[in-house]
């Protein structure tokens, strides 16, 4: 089927666009923008992680290092060389891609739980390294000088520009996720997920396919990191390499349904809205982490296919829409 005739792709793009346009119609626009920035960022992170976790079947606890490294390199260019945002974003993407390529060549030889363990180690190693790396400000990180925003017509304008860039990027990620899933490359990845040995016997060059999947899934967090920390105005190791955040992204993918295009999108949006609600509710504010944990446990034990996966199983007619 041609991509533009697939209702499933349109639904995913429309939902993303609706999230992106929300601040334009909301009463309190800057507030809605901040809220939707977080949601879109999560959608982008979850959808890109899904290329590894959902399509290829490799659980990566270090997805956030690409966000952190890309963010750091971009931020460095922004603050030290006053590079334009698009140059910084490009640099973030390239850094993430390069690191993923080299890392992938090494650790993708590990299978299953061993790969997952290695990514935990890499996440911690990257954070400890940046903490000690003086050009990046060591443990205190870096802060953007206010005049950097002047080039974008002031801080307010800069925030909107960043937001629009994120909306476009997220739409692109959804499109790429769809194109990968429906391509020959994607078929190879899913064969690897199901049975890597059998896939190799069928002629799938698993080491290469996995490496490219890893690179592709790393590029987007690299760019998102640049946008996020540009918007934030400062960057520090604790924010850039939180193992916790890597795991939250895994939870989002699971919540929506891994291996689907629409799943991580819905999972990320639901998770962030739920989290937002728990944070403002006085009853749940103190135990939001525990509630999120309980939610995760319930999904794993009883709805392992995720929300969208469950819907697809329960109502086969919806499958055309929920790809």
């Amino acid at each position: 089927m041609k991509p533009w005739r697939d209702p499933g792709l349109w639904l995913s793009l429309l939902v993303t666009a609706a999230i992106g346009l929300w601040p334009a119609v909301a009463a309190n626009k800057p507030y809605a923008r901040e809220m939707m920035f977080t949601v879109l960022m999560s959608v982008g992170l979850a959808s890109s992680l899904n290329i590894m976790q959902g399509y290829t079947g490799y659980v990566n606890f270090g997805h956030i290092i690409f966000f952190g490294l890309g963010g750091y390199v971009g931020f460095y260019l922004l603050s030290v060389y006053h590079a334009p945002l698009y140059v910084a974003a490009l640099a973030g993407a390239l850094t993430a891609a390069l690191v993923a390529f080299l890392l992938g060549k090494a650790i993708l030889r590990l299978r299953g739980a061993y790969f997952a363990l290695a990514t935990i180690g890499i996440n911690e190693a990257a954070r400890s390294f940046v903490k000690n790396f003086d050009p990046f400000g060591g443990p205190t990180g870096m802060t953007l000088k206010f005049h950097v925003y002047q080039a974008y017509g002031g801080a307010n304008q800069a925030l909107w520009i960043t937001y629009i860039a994120l909306v476009v990027l997220t739409l692109l990620i959804i499109l790429v996720s769809y194109l990968v899933k429906t391509s020959k490359f994607g078929l190879g990845l899913m064969a690897i997920r199901e049975n890597e040995d059998a896939a190799e016997v069928m002629g799938i060059v698993a080491p290469d396919a996995k490496t490219w999947a890893y690179v592709l899934s790393a590029v987007f967090p690299g760019i998102i990191g640049v946008l996020f920390f540009f918007k934030n105005g400062n960057i520090e190791p604790g924010d850039a390499f939180r193992l916790q955040q890597s795991i939250e992204v895994i939870v989002m993918v699971m919540l929506g349904g891994q291996g689907l295009v629409f799943g991580p999108l819905v999972g990320a949006a639901v998770y962030q809205r739920l989290r937002g609600y728990l944070l403002v509710s006085p009853l749940f504010k103190n135990i939001q982490l525990a509630v999120a944990g309980l939610l995760l446990l319930i999904i794993i034990l009883f709805v392992p296919a995720g929300l969208i996966g469950w819907l697809r199983g329960r109502f086969p007619r919806l499958r055309r829409w929920l790809v």
Binding site: M190, A191, N195, A199, G203, G259
Partner: peptide
């Protein structure tokens, strides 16, 4: 037998055709 369980029968066989010589 080593079927790719979560893919359809058609996709299994397509994978064979796609990645062979």
């Amino acid at each position: 037998v080593q079927p790719l369980n979560d893919l359809t029968v058609l996709e299994n066989v397509m994978a064979g055709a796609c990645f062979g010589h």
